[in-house]
Structure formats: C-alpha cells, structure tokens
Nucleic acid binder design. Structure first.
Lengths: 115, 115
DNA sequence: CCGGATCCGATGGGATACTG
DNA sequence: CAGTATCCCATCGGATCCGG
C-alpha cells in the first residue's frame, strides 16, 4: 500500500473533512443514523438550526453522495433524507474520532500514565 | 458506559474536529510525523502558508495538547515543534479518514504503482 | 411542508509591516 | 529566526422574506 504518498492522502482526508467540516454536519449525520427523516423532522431534532444552515448541510452531504434525497410527491410535498452506503460507512470515521476524543479529553482522565 | 450518549459523543468528536478542522491543521500534523521541526522549516515545507496561518494553527494544536512547543535559547532563537503522544495517537483518526476517503472517492478507484 | 433568495454579522485565512 | 500587530477579504452561519 502507499505509505508515503502525501498528495493522494490529502485528497482522501479532505473528502472526510468536507463531510464533517461544517458546523452541523456531524449532527445531521448522527440523526440520520436513526433512519430516514424529513426536513422539518431533522430541524426539530437539531434544535435551533436555521433553514438555510440545514439546507446547506444537506446539499453538501448530498453532493458528496453521503446523503440521499428523495422527494415524495404528496401534498404538501414530503422530502425524505437518508444515508447512503457511503454515509453509513462513515460511522467508522466518527467512531475513531470519538474514541480518540474520549481518550484524550482534558480532565476526564485523571490517570496520566507517565509512560 | 457511554453507548448511547449523544452529548458526550459530541464533545469527543468535536475535539477531533477542532484538531483537523483548520485549513492547514492536517498539513502541519502530517509534517510533524516526520519528526520535530522548526517554524520556518515547517513554513517552507508547507509551501505558501503565511506566518499568521501557521502561527494560528500551531497555537490551536498547542492548546489542545497535540503539539509541543520548545524554545531553544540560542541566538537567534530556535523554536522546535513536535507531536505529543496525543498528537501521535491521532494517526488512527487520520488513517480512518483516509481509508474512507480513498474507498469512496469519485472515479479514483484505479490503483497507482501497485507492486 | 420544503426550501430558494437575500441581507447581515461573525469568523477564518491571507498580505504586509514591524519587533525581539 | 520566530513571531506580533494590523488591515482586508472570502466564506460561513443565522434571520427574514418569499415562492413552489
């Protein structure tokens, strides 16, 4: 495997960063792990997020193929958002982030193994 | 144990996001994996990064305990930056990001220089 | 109910000048 | 060499109005 390629590494990591980089990206993705949700359903779940912020976040995730957007032609229109396989697969990244964060969060760990 | 806590999950993931969230954070960390480096050494390695951007990135990483800053009182002053254990441990996160990114990057499926 | 359009304040990153 | 201080602009995120 490529062990010293910086450039291609960059692009791959960048893809992940764009996915969770936004302020609400993580929250949106987290909610969608519970299953498909409609727009205002997400809005309510995320508390004080504004329409534009949520739209932007969803559009970004959609462009990356992380989120799938399905329009259900009822009246009024219903739009359902769900995670794609790529999105579900992203759990591994979040999990790793969380593991690292919890391990090194300040103050939470008293035992400072001096090595 | 934390199996379904969203809030603490958030804090942990947030810690990771703050670490790589900045535009240059990833590049700085990557360079430091090669070993301790001085300020201008980093600057040159990172190409067109400005003084302020590099300073900001390093300060942020320093605050989080990811990077260690050591002043060597020579003349002129030398300052050496290196990764802490927390920083070195972050490789797992970057690795996971990279793995996911490479797996799902659009169209870039073909492998290069396969032995 | 979903979300596009627009204005606005906060923030981040870059360029330049100057200092210890 | 290693920054600090300052100004500037691009982008982000939020609020509001409006249309499908």
């Amino acid at each position: 495997m490529s062990s010293s390629e910086d450039s291609m590494c960059r692009a791959a990591v960048d893809e992940a960063l764009q996915t969770v980089g936004g302020k609400w990206s993580y929250d949106v993705i987290s909610r969608l792990y519970y299953g498909p949700q409609r727009f205002n359903q997400l809005r309510r779940a995320l508390g004080g997020i504004t329409v534009k912020s949520l739209t932007d976040a969803l559009r970004q995730l959609e462009r990356q193929g992380v989120v799938h957007r399905e329009v259900i032609p009822t009246y009024p229109v219903n739009v359902e958002y769900s995670l794609t396989e790529k999105g579900r697969d992203f759990r591994a990244v979040l999990f790793q982030m969380r593991a690292w964060g919890e391990k090194w969060l300040p103050g939470e760990k008293d035992e400072k193994a001096e090595g």
